[in-house]
């Protein structure tokens, strides 16, 4: 292959990459476009890609007091879930990785298999449990349920990551007389940071969009989270598509932003985790 044709090939591939990503992002672009359309500008048939007179008015409408309340609730619930799920997941994954006995493997398989249950079939019994524990309408109800859902996957991801760490490091620490807890805190924890970030992002993305539990456990308006809250805005008789899309953009922004900042770790963490999964 000549140098020139290789360069041309690379340019071709680069534009292919660019084009495909654009194609994937087209719906997102359209969401933003509709969110900028003034309420007075009617929808054209067939649809147009960009409004004639873009405006931020929809965003001003969408950013109402309820939205702010729901937003704060979502943040609290998501962050707490991430913190608990990742910590518990790390401890459990560490145990699974470093210790081999049959009972543990069986438990692990059972914990992972829990993902197979359709939520809508077990939501009423779960609701009863929350009620008898007096947890309805609390952050705790959601955090506990979300930890139960995300913890199995968190363990799976973290375990795959921890298995890549060379056991010699820990052995050296043990020879130095450090107990298992010390070893974990001083040696394992600092080394597993990329895996922790990757898992945290995964848990955050899942938690941020959960709908059915949030709908069932929370009735009070002041405790609602965003995915349920967006339905408040739709209601039976609907708001304009512009406002709906503006709200959608606002809901998506925080996760997208966090994700953009952390994506390097995320990809790195998964890189390690996935291979040895």
């Amino acid at each position: 292959m000549t140098r020139g044709s290789r360069a041309a090939g690379r340019a071709g591939l680069a534009s292919l990459q660019f084009g495909l990503v654009l194609f994937v992002l087209l719906p997102v672009f359209w969401m933003v476009s509709v969110s900028l359309k003034p309420a007075t500008e009617p929808f054209a048939i067939p649809a147009r890609l960009w409004p004639d007179h873009p405006t931020l008015a929809n965003f001003l409408h969408a950013f109402r007091p309820e939205f702010r309340t729901y937003f704060i609730n979502s943040v609290v619930v998501s962050l707490a879930t991430v913190a608990i799920s990742v910590s518990l997941g790390l401890l459990a994954a560490y145990s699974f990785t470093r210790t081999q006995f049959r009972l543990l493997s069986v438990l692990m398989a059972l914990v992972l298999a829990a993902q197979m249950f359709p939520e809508s079939a077990i939501i009423i019994p779960i609701y009863r449990i929350m009620r008898s524990a007096d947890l309805l309408n609390t952050y705790a109800s959601l955090i506990i349920a979300y930890v139960a859902v995300t913890l199995p996957v968190a363990i799976w991801m973290l375990r795959a990551f921890l298995m890549r760490l060379p056991p010699t490091l820990e052995e050296a620490a043990e020879i130095d007389g450090a107990g298992p807890l010390r070893t974990f805190l001083d040696i394992v924890l600092p080394l597993s940071r990329p895996g922790v970030v990757a898992t945290a992002v995964f848990v955050l993305v899942v938690t941020w969009q959960e709908f059915l539990f949030a709908l069932s456990f929370i009735s009070s308006k002041s405790m609602r989270t965003l995915p349920v809250g967006i339905n408040d805005f739709i209601g039976q008789y609907g708001i304009s598509y512009g406002e709906l899309m503006a709200t959608s953009v606002l809901i998506s922004l925080p996760v997208v932003a966090i994700f953009m900042v952390l994506q390097r770790y995320f990809v790195a963490g998964l890189t390690v985790g996935a291979v040895k999964g």
Partner: peptide, 19 residues
Amino acid sequence: MMIPRILLAATALMAVATT
């Protein structure tokens, strides 16, 4: 229902419950 109640109440201490 007794067992789940105790367990969940214990877990609940981790988060803020509003009453």
